[in-house]
Design a protein around this nucleic acid. Structure first.
Length: 526
DNA sequence: ATTGCGTTGCAAAA
DNA sequence: TTTTGCAACGCAAT
């Protein structure tokens, strides 16, 4: 009953892998010809917020995908242009009858796919979509949560638990699975449809950092297996206890692979469960499995919250009067704040494209509610450009978390740009690596070199204010001011949420709570 | 309606 | 070394 009745395109977008790719399997079914396609939208090349390191990661990923397809006697077709238009052209050219792709819940993708679906409908091409980027059908999670986005990890976990375990990962197709289905390849394939080089993408080599994380499914699976072998480490893993400033990553760095779908989150999920089996192990939210669930949490909220990557018009986001300051923003971006821990992190980010989660916390807090009082949207843009793992839902969600705009509200917990890094790196080796200009300072002053006496600065060949900047703000001062500003913004949103007019005495509703919560009323009792 | 709790702060006081 | 001040939102359990 396997009639070869289809000529199919599988459209790769995320999900740049062959394992656990049910939509790709669907394309193989009953197909005489199969065309794996990746559409490179030139608009993205010129306008999107993608830095050189992530372009390289994507190019490596596409090359790896093409190589893995070759072993199935298939090839990847990279085409340039608007997906809607290019796919239509290809469907006509190749007489396609079936298009398959993986569901993508990001707003731009939803809109794009809607247009493509319409076009395919007009062409009489059947469209098959499968869920494999997330653990669950996240709209079902929302439904189970009473039709609204879960706003806490707990409520997400409750909803997720009601979903039952995520589906098992689907195996990669074999030559047998393909049953002789082939990709017709022209001699001109590489010229016409080859994976673009960095030169094609307009990437200058001076913008590239060291190639620490090779893109692609092959490396993703190897990296995963390497970590899964460390059974004790997996079972004991607690994210908050991993070090933000270790010289080799203290976590798995699977995030870039999950972002592009080089690695299936479901596969990782079930592999971790296997390692746990019969052993005592840490629990969500801090466990390794808990990290996969955090990803799912943000994907879920982001999919059903309008304007999730903005403050205005975003119903889950606290409205806070951030201020613009392009000098401070540039200093933060370029690692010139005068706080070595912050600057070292930003330089690692710029050079290498990955920083530890807690390092992200430190610099995000510094930019927003901690020190500079600049909008989290600015930080979000910079992370989007520089992070290999920049993932729309997670990036926006985490920036709101850190700026105490959503999910997290204890805004008086402010990371110290001096104390936080010292805990796990008292000698400042991390700072010395990324800010070699400070290398000759003794440990006592490496986190606050402006306090070193001038003779010591001279001995270190680094005069603060000349060879390395003075702090652009005084942390202790701005921290206190900013906590007060946060209190004011919170109070305003509370009042504004109900009614402006009622301020004076008439409101007898919840008098005790109003009084006790008011920041002005801070009196010691008795 | 009220209470308890939540992935990851810090520094001074006890 | 542990506790407390900073001043606290959303949700689930009671």
């Amino acid at each position: 009953m396997s009639q070869k009745c289809h000529k199919a395109i599988h459209w790769f977008r995320k999900g740049l892998r062959l394992h656990d790719n049910p939509a790709f399997i669907e394309a193989c079914k009953d197909a005489s010809e199969l065309y794996p396609v990746f559409v490179l939208d030139p608009w993205f090349v010129t306008n999107a917020n993608v830095g050189a390191n992530r372009w390289r990661f994507l190019a490596q990923t596409l090359n790896d995908l093409d190589n893995n397809l070759k072993s199935l006697h298939l090839r990847l077709f990279v085409v340039r242009g608007n997906p809607e238009i290019e796919l239509e052209k290809l469907c006509k050219k190749w007489e396609i009858t079936k298009l398959t792709y993986e569901v993508d819940t990001e707003p731009y993708a939803v809109a794009r796919d809607k247009c493509v679906d319409l076009k395919m409908d007009n062409l009489g091409v059947s469209v098959v979509k499968c869920i494999s980027h997330t653990l669950f059908d996240i709209h079902k999670v929302v439904k189970v949560n009473g039709g609204k986005a879960p706003l806490t990890y707990q409520s997400f976990q409750t909803a997720a638990a009601r979903m039952g375990p995520p589906a098992q990962a689907v195996a990669s197709p074999t030559l047998q699975d393909l049953q002789g289905c082939r990709t017709p390849i022209a001699d001109t394939h590489d010229k016409e449809f080859g994976v673009p080089t960095l030169k094609d993408l307009g990437i200058c080599s001076e913008d590239l950092g060291p190639n620490l994380f090779q893109g692609g499914e092959t490396e993703a699976l190897e990296r995963m297996e390497r970590h899964l072998k460390k059974v004790n480490w997996i079972c004991a893993f607690e994210k908050p206890k991993t070090e933000p400033n270790s010289l080799v990553p203290s976590t798995t760095v699977l995030s870039p692979y999950l972002k592009f779908g080089c690695l299936s989150a479901r596969l990782l999920y079930h592999k971790i469960i296997q390692v746990y089996k019969g052993k005592k192990h840490s629990q969500p939210p801090v466990s390794l499995l808990g990290q996969v669930l955090w990803r799912e949490f943000y994907y879920t909220v982001a999919a059903v919250t309008p304007n999730f990557d903005k403050m205005e018009g975003n119903p889950v986001c606290k409205q806070i009067p951030w201020q613009e300051n392009s000098e401070h923003l540039d200093a933060w971006k370029m690692g010139r704040t005068g706080y070595p821990f912050i600057d070292a992190i930003m330089i690692q980010l710029r050079q290498e494209g990955w920083i530890h989660h807690l390092a992200r916390h430190a610099v995000a807090c510094f930019l927003t509610r901690g020190d500079l009082w600049i909008s989290w949207e600015e930080g979000q843009k910079e992370f989007e450009k520089l992070l290999l793992d920049a993932d729309w839902s997670l990036n926006a969600g985490n920036w709101m978390w850190l700026s105490a705009s959503a999910f997290f509200h204890q805004y008086f917990r402010v990371y110290s740009p001096i104390a936080f890094g010292k805990k796990t790196d008292p000698n400042g080796d991390y700072i010395r690596k990324y800010l070699p200009v400070l290398n000759k300072f003794p440990a006592k002053f490496i986190f606050e070199p402006w306090k070193a006496p001038l003779t010591m600065q001279q001995a270190a060949s680094c005069i603060i204010g000349k060879d390395y900047p003075k702090p652009i703000v005084d942390h202790d001062t701005v921290r206190q001011k900013n906590i007060q500003k946060m209190a004011a913004a919170y109070a305003k949103s509370k009042n504004g949420a109900s009614n402006d007019v009622k301020d004076l005495a008439t409101s007898k509703k919840r008098p005790s709570s109003d009084a006790s919560n008011s920041p002005v009323k801070k009196k010691k009792k008795a």
